[in-house]
Simulated assay, not measured.
Amino acid sequence: MPACNPPRWKISDLDFSSIALDRVRSDETHFYLACSASFVESGSDLYTRNLVDLFAGDDEVTTWLREHWEAEELQHGRALRAYVQHVWPEFDWESAFRGFLEEYSTYCKVELLAPTRGLEMSARCVVETGTATYYRALARGTREPVFRDLATHIANDEVSHYKQFFRFFRRYREQEGLGRTRVMRTLARRTWELRSEDADCAIRHIAKARAPERAEDARYLREMSSRMGRTVGRNISPGTALKMLMRPLELPRRVEAAVQFPIEQFMTRVFLR
């Protein structure tokens, strides 16, 4: 059983009163980035239920999911919500989130998980790679110190989660006799899905509450999504992400070096599209 370590940080560690409002208050892209992240993180319990169902009977995994992963993911959501409400107090976060959650819950189904426990653990490694990369990019790209600290805390948590999912993956890989080809297919599919319906769903519901006249404006929604993607894409560090992404394959060093460039290009496309 993983050790029950205390949380690495608490929301009270963040001094919201010191937020540099003049740097972010009028930044619409920053607002959408922070708010969409708060929505997705606040819906993490939906995925926890699915994963607990998939791994029923494996007490080590299900206990860690409930007591560590879910608790930390929901703390991310609460901290991001507090940030949004401090900078943009006029935004009706609760109402917008309810609309988001109603739609988002339709994407979170057990049947959408990978076909085996081991492959789902490899998929979770991709997700944690993506979120760690995403929050590191947000930390690098912001001019606001409190948000930089918050994004850094979250990125560090995601790296820790990755390590735990990878440990579970190795155990299941041996049990299921998973070959590299099956793992590679799962990694590629899940990487391409990193920026899919989650962010688009959040953007739609934020716009509905923030600017109702633009909620049905497909061109505006696409442009906002592109602006968010460019902000992240300019600040990603593909080298670190690549090592995390490829680790479940445990490729020989020579082969890993040969595929490094095309995979870096693929990951950049994922974040910029």
Results as ranks from 00 to 15, higher is better:
residue 10 K to T: 15
residue 10 K to M: 14
residue 11 I to R: 07
residue 11 I to F: 02
residue 12 S to C: 12
residue 12 S to T: 15
residue 14 L to M: 07
residue 17 S to I: 06
residue 17 S to V: 01
residue 18 S to D: 07
residue 20 A to R: 02
residue 20 A to L: 04
residue 22 D to T: 06
residue 22 D to I: 03
residue 24 V to T: 12
residue 25 R to S: 15
residue 25 R to T: 13
residue 27 D to C: 11
residue 27 D to V: 15
residue 27 D to E: 12
residue 31 F to S: 08
residue 33 L to F: 07
residue 33 L to S: 10
residue 35 C to F: 00
residue 35 C to H: 04
residue 39 F to V: 02
residue 41 E to W: 07
residue 43 G to H: 06
residue 45 D to L: 05
residue 46 L to F: 09
residue 49 R to L: 12
residue 51 L to Y: 03
residue 54 L to Q: 15
residue 54 L to I: 05
residue 54 L to D: 01
residue 58 D to S: 00
residue 59 D to G: 03
residue 60 E to S: 12
residue 61 V to F: 14
residue 63 T to W: 00
residue 66 R to T: 15
residue 66 R to Y: 08
residue 66 R to S: 14
residue 67 E to W: 02
residue 69 W to C: 05
residue 70 E to Y: 02
residue 70 E to C: 11
residue 71 A to C: 12
residue 72 E to P: 00
residue 73 E to L: 08
residue 79 A to Q: 02
residue 79 A to P: 04
residue 79 A to E: 03
residue 85 Q to L: 10
residue 85 Q to F: 01
residue 87 V to E: 09
residue 89 P to I: 05
residue 90 E to S: 12
residue 92 D to T: 10
residue 92 D to F: 09
residue 94 E to G: 05
residue 94 E to C: 00
residue 98 R to L: 06
residue 99 G to W: 01
residue 99 G to T: 05
residue 100 F to C: 05
residue 101 L to Q: 09
residue 102 E to T: 12
residue 103 E to W: 04
residue 104 Y to Q: 07
residue 105 S to T: 08
residue 107 Y to P: 00
residue 107 Y to L: 11
residue 108 C to M: 13
residue 110 V to C: 08
residue 110 V to R: 13
residue 112 L to F: 15
residue 113 L to K: 13
residue 114 A to V: 10
residue 115 P to E: 08
residue 117 R to Q: 12
